[in-house]
Design a protein around this nucleic acid. Structure first.
Lengths: 226, 226
DNA sequence: CGGCGTTTTGATCGCTCTCAATTTTGGTGG
DNA sequence: CCACCAAAATTGAGAGCGATCAAAACGCCG
């Protein structure tokens, strides 16, 4: 995003607010009143099914917006919750709409963000449909690692990645028990490891090969974010 | 979309072209030169994995655009192929971009379409993650039936639905063999039936209950399209 | 009429789930 | 700093859903 646009957008941001972990930022059925921008911490989009199970459809990291839908749609068809303590800022629906009307380039930028999100979602669909549990877990970790790298969250080849095995399971359609076994296998094979909330990928080439990971679907995101 | 905008968009449409079934409209890796609008027939977005398996991530019906990405992104991360003989029209990338710059409301409309697509994709992720094979098949059929109803494709409660069991399997992450067994079960239970390329939903209330189908995620699409 | 792709059915395999119990971790209050 | 508690991680045993392999019947199109 061109800096002058980013500036105008930043000007609309509310004062940052601290949110505890595991708290809804938006709830299904709500009419979203404002767009929320993640400044620190992780969050996720999710749905709860009639049986009570949860499916996560996206992870939100610092810099991600939730929700771009604000200015267009009227009702949330999913919820968004923090996974860690988070810092967020708001942009009021009306102010955002006014700015978007005044700055078509900004609307285009938002549209572009949307397209990148769609790329990621498509990759998730491919994973859930055609990859086994080991590939799914590995692929997700590579995605998160790449995204985190792009926003400077990776230090010394380590990523503080606060996802519990329950959360990983809810994102991949697996049980936490099975996620645990998959992680053990990946660890034993020396490919990657999650230790104390920190992700370390020891052999990213092998992991990418095994999981069929191709970061080109993220490139646009990464290039633009860089 | 307001009629005057639709008119300006229509003015850019190329002469309709006939495309045979099973032909790529766009191929992964291509730089898309034009946006394609489906006028007749069905198509799908898909990826081919290293192992040779295919995953379909969306179905395109008349009125759907493929691809909105044209004016923003540079390279396709998936392919689009016809499933039936189809009639399509093109809008050249540059002309579309010029019109979008001149008509912010049109860009907003495109953004809005994108958000609806995203709703549908999220529902797919939920299905693939947390629904069993019977629920998945039923849920997809209800989605397609609702979308087809909205564009007037349903007559006498019957939908000409040209998806083979192979295609359904590729969309839901199931084998064609298992899709067949699921369809048999749905037929035997008197819930729905696919006969000679025609879908008939005998007990949509029961099917919706069993599959956890809630059309609210489509309402925006349907309302607007109506 | 012939041929190929789709549909259908059967038998068996195996990946992932379920159920259950134990250990570890992290956060909280004394 | 330590005791305690709840949540998460870990491991084992067994069951089931959907995959795989195989083959036959069907339908469509040339």
């Amino acid at each position: 995003m061109p800096p002058e646009l980013a500036g105008k957008l930043t000007a609309l941001l509310s004062k940052p607010r601290d949110i505890p972990a595991r708290q809804d930022l938006m709830t299904e059925g709500d009419a979203p009143a404002a767009m929320v921008v993640m400044l620190e911490g992780w969050a996720c989009r999710y749905n709860i099914l009639p049986e009570g199970t949860r499916q996560i459809s996206a992870f939100l990291m610092p810099g991600d917006c939730c929700d771009l839908h604000v200015s267009v749609l009227t009702e949330m068809d999913h919820s968004i919750a923090t996974l860690t303590p988070a810092k967020v800022a708001h942009i009021q629906r009306d102010e955002l709409n006014d700015l978007l009307d005044a700055e078509p380039a900004l609307m285009r930028a938002f549209w572009w963000m949307q397209l990148v999100n769609e790329s990621v979602m498509r990759a998730w669909i491919v994973s859930m449909g055609r990859r086994d549990s080991l590939q799914r877990v590995g692929h997700l970790m590579l995605e998160l690692y790449a995204r985190a790298t792009a926003i400077g969250l990776v230090r010394d080849d380590r990523l503080v990645m606060p996802l519990t095995q329950i959360v990983i399971g809810d994102a991949l359609g697996l049980t936490p028990v099975h996620v645990n076994r998959v992680l053990r296998r990946l660890r034993e094979e020396g490919v990657m490891e999650i230790q104390g909330g920190t992700l370390t990928i020891a052999d990213s080439a092998k992991l990418a090969r095994v999981t069929g990971f191709d970061d080109s679907y993220l490139h646009r995101r990464l290039k633009r974010a860089a």
